[in-house]
Simulated scan of single mutants.
Amino acid sequence: MGVDKKTAIIEAAFQLFEEKGFALTTIDEIAKASGMTKPSFYKYFPGKEDLLLEVIEIFAEELEEKVQRLYRKVDLSKSDRIIELSMIYLEDIFKYHTYLDFFLDPSQHFFENERIQNAVMTVERKVFTWLEDSIADLYGEQMDGFVVDVSFIALSVMFVYTRVSGPNLSFDHNRKLAVYIEYLVGLVVEGLKFKKPEMPLLFETPSWVMNCWPEDVTPVMRSRQLQRVYRRMELTIKNHVSLSESEKKDYLQAIAQIKTESKDSLEQNVIIKALLYYLEQLDELRDECEQLRLIFEPEASSSQN
């Protein structure tokens, strides 16, 4: 019962923050919209800032889940990945009017709340790192130290554009901006090919960017790991001299099924566990199966060690 009421408060806050922004939404309004009294509200949240903190944390979790799902789309091109990443960010920024108000207007009093400030900056750092990884993944050695600068330019364009255009852009308009960002990144990279010797760096590996992934595993890195393991397994099967064509087909279908099952979540469900058990019966695939387990559930694996 208590969980339901807390959820009702959060959902009401989402709606009101989206409509009015954080500053103009009162606790009385949130309580009324969630079907309870103001004293009942305080049973779950000491104040509006505590509620905002939870809203930001939910926003961050949803954002990360969408990005993780994006990087599991193995058929998506690297340039389209930048567009889709920009779309996720743009649509979620506009969805959570609270977050937009907070980040674009740091003069508001709750910016002094260290917990809220840290929560927001964590989101920003992760978004920066996701974009940086995607750009580096697409252009590789051409970046040669400029990837942080290029990422900064791309995100700056999105920030300024969202600030001047307001939170009511259509899906098509957001898509147009996302495509523009990907095209702009390409132009900047092309320009740097010719201007690198004279071009100064804005950022030389700023610590606030590079230290935001304590687990040292970004979505791009995890996606690369998965694809490398899949390719090794498929090549092992195709080149195996002792397997019949029928057996090879069965093993390859098992790998394809794992790819399908892992598109929505990296947690090992019953099907993935069974398929990995089946695949590791072939001695040559045991190491790869263990690597997949580590990639799928790194926290669970590390806790067992």
Rank of each mutant, 00 (worst) to 15 (best):
L24W: 13
E261I: 13
E288Q: 15
M233W: 05
V157E: 05
P167I: 09
G21Y: 00
Q257M: 11
A119H: 05
K263Q: 14
K32P: 09
S246I: 15
D133F: 12
V179H: 04
K176A: 11
D105M: 13
L177W: 02
F146T: 12
E29M: 13
E204Q: 14
S156I: 07
N211M: 15
L177E: 03
L275P: 10
I153F: 15
Q117S: 15
V74Y: 15
R222V: 13
S207M: 11
E234P: 01
L53M: 08
L266F: 12
V127S: 03
P214N: 03
Y277T: 14
S151P: 14
S170T: 15
F171W: 05
K32W: 00
T98R: 00
V147H: 02
R228M: 13
V220Y: 00
L53D: 02
D101A: 11
R163Q: 13
S165A: 14
L285N: 09
L279F: 13
G145H: 00
P219Y: 09
E182R: 14
P200Y: 09
A23H: 07
D216Y: 08
E141F: 01
H97L: 11
E91C: 07
P206T: 03
S34L: 08
T218I: 08
L275S: 05
V229P: 06
K38I: 13
A23G: 04
H109V: 07
I135N: 01
R81S: 07
S77E: 08
S301N: 05
M210Y: 11
I295E: 00
M87Q: 09
P167C: 08
F103Y: 11
E299A: 11
F128I: 03
I153K: 01
K126W: 00
Q15G: 07
V67Y: 00
L155A: 07
K78L: 10
Y42M: 03
P46G: 13
Y230R: 12
V3I: 11
P219H: 06
T25R: 06
L275G: 07
L51R: 03
F128C: 02
K193A: 08
R222P: 14
W213R: 11
T205N: 10
V67L: 01
I135F: 05
F14T: 03
L279E: 12
Q117T: 05
M221S: 10
F111I: 04
P39N: 08
P219S: 10
F59D: 01
Q68G: 06
Y89F: 10
M121E: 10
W130D: 09
V185S: 07
Y251H: 15
R222I: 09
M87N: 04
G47I: 02
R232C: 06
Y71Q: 00
V209Y: 09
M158K: 08
S86W: 04
S107D: 07
P214Q: 06
V179M: 05
M143C: 11
T236Y: 04
L282M: 14
L70Y: 01
D283K: 12
E280C: 15
S170D: 06
Q257H: 06
K259N: 10
L192T: 06
